[in-house]
Design a protein around this nucleic acid. Structure first.
Lengths: 329, 329
DNA sequence: CGCACACCTGAGAGCGTTATCACGACAAGC
DNA sequence: GCTTGTCGTGATAACGCTCTCAGGTGTGCG
């Protein structure tokens, strides 16, 4: 923390310049209570002239409000923070928080380590917490002090309002597109299996395959491109006659395509590939990726707004996902 | 801002429980001044037992320190915030700030609108500002109140310490690689021309071409894939005999490759393509992208640390860029 | 014994804001 | 006239913390 040099313009300065008491100046600037037209004008003019900017810190202190919103990403280690998805999330949240005078902090929250959550709950400078990719067990264990100022992204639980894309719908849209294109031997590269949002896609895949009378062929991934490449090779070795691979994320799909290309397999001619997320690079990959949208910024915005407003929200908000048919499938 | 319900544990509670005064408790927990072993133990135990978490807001208020670090991205409109580069930057900064009890806010700062900067300078809850992609004119006009707690990323000026990748070195490495591969008719798709970091790459390109006795062939881009695609078509129409395109960003390069593919031009056989940034998807694109590294997270971390520490830093810090030779060139 | 100097402690003054309270002025209604 | 009410205002008490200052106590030394 850095200590600035020159003295700031305070409410007292404004009040003095306007010839009123601090209380009146606060009322005028805060827009509450009564104030004569005369007082309103004088205070407004003085504030403009002096360049008064209210001190958010002092305001938060007296109001008992927090000044920080913590984005807490769960996972087995801190590398979960190195993720374009998290980047987008944080960036969108930071944008929503700025006009509220709230700042965003990004932390890694070890899985099943309730101490971290308790600390956040006891910290009065924290106005809210966005739990990302946690487990429903962790959500059930949210301390009472945090209730009402915590929401979850990617994981549902009755204890905490949650926001996420409609994973089942997105996965279903891509899988049906694959099926409509005549593909019948469809494998899936999953996300991390402990993650409930990833698991919803898997469930959708299994349900659809069963309904179509086709066998489910699962290989575990972790949403990354590198792991996607390895998973693709595993798919090929276990089921050489495969004609489509559905990847649980676009990054995974790009890794899959790169690996297939390395084996001389043509996409989509020999094997079609579908993804999920519609990241910016999906449109310019070769071949352009068929995928389903994942409105990360909208989800983050809604989640942050819910915390900031503190109004009760629906227990579960699922954002629609839309098929984007391109070349890869 | 959200008002929590239950009362928090304050320093007074800890002091009372430990049987000492608030001052002593503050000294023990703050680790400054004198305190007997006995007092230290009792206060520590009480703090642990009660689950005391210091209130950053109150601390910041009394210290006159800020609680927010503002990332201000310049540009003609707010769409500059929709950029994976900005996302990474903000995310890395948020990570560095978290342990300091500082939150990050993200704002768009209109080009040449000093009012925004003045407001940030007058806001005492702002501990620092990271100016991203601004103009050197704006840097020269940084208000005195902000001096010492503002740094720039991507633009240099004597007035403000700046951090950026060594654009000239990165561009040079890729261009030399292109040249070493036998390419002689090399065009460049630039970044936004008003951006000094983008201009440094252009200067490097022009210098290298002149030194090699080759003509400079420039088409303006804006770092995006979409614009890169359009720029590639323009390159083809103006110089049909081109054998390499150097793109100022990987996103641009991916757009270029997609456009070339659309015209039936093989990369790298007919036209080699080089990029800049080494984004995660560069490794899995088809063909895998030859590029130069851009350590965004390291740059952001260094810049944020400089602001947080408030220590004087070098006027200009250039982070090295390294060639990553893959398939596209 | 007197004095200097360490070590330790608590009272209390702020930091800049909000919000409660009491007070005064004036108008309307009985 | 007295009450009731609306409007406008200024003291002032918080909010939770840091840090200075004035006092202790004890030890060493002349």
């Amino acid at each position: 923390m850095n200590t600035p040099t020159s003295r700031a313009v305070t409410l007292d300065d404004v009040a003095r310049a306007a010839g009123v008491s601090r209380a009146t100046a606060s009322r005028v600037l805060g827009g509450y209570g009564f104030a004569s037209v005369d007082a309103r004008e004088r205070v407004g003019a003085a504030a403009d002239r002096l360049g008064y900017v209210p001190n958010t810190t002092a305001r938060a202190l007296v109001r008992g409000a927090g000044v920080r919103l913590v984005v807490a990403v769960s996972g087995t280690d801190a590398t979960v923070l190195d993720d374009p998805y998290v980047d987008r999330l944080v960036s969108a949240v930071a944008r929503v928080c700025a006009p509220h005078g709230v700042g965003v902090a990004l932390e890694w929250l070890p899985l099943d380590a309730p101490a971290g959550l308790r600390r956040l709950g006891d910290d009065r400078s924290v106005c809210g917490v966005l739990l990302v990719n946690t487990t429903s067990r962790a959500l059930d264990a949210v301390p009472a002090g945090l209730r009402g100022r915590v929401v979850s992204i990617g994981t549902g639980s009755p204890a905490v309002p949650s926001f996420d894309v409609d994973n089942a719908a997105g996965a279903g849209a891509v899988l049906r597109h694959l099926y409509a294109g005549g593909r019948r031997r469809i494998a899936m590269v999953t996300g991390p299996r402990w993650l409930s949002c990833a698991e919803r896609s898997v469930t959708a895949y299994q349900g659809l395959m069963r309904a179509a009378g086709l066998p489910a062929r699962l290989v575990n991934g972790d949403f990354t491109a590198a792991r996607g490449g390895r998973a693709a090779l595993e798919v090929l070795s276990r089921w050489p006659d495969i004609d489509a691979i559905y990847a649980a994320s676009d990054a995974t799909a790009l890794g899959v395509i790169a690996a297939l290309r390395g084996r001389g397999i043509r996409v989509p001619h020999d094997v079609a590939v579908g993804g999920f997320d519609d990241i910016p690079y999906a449109a310019v990959s070769s071949p352009a990726l068929t995928t389903a949208t994942h409105p990360v910024a909208r989800i983050a915005t809604a989640a942050a707004t819910a915390v900031l407003d503190g109004r009760p929200v629906l227990p579960v908000t699922a954002f629609p996902s839309r098929l984007v048919a391109r070349e890869s499938a």
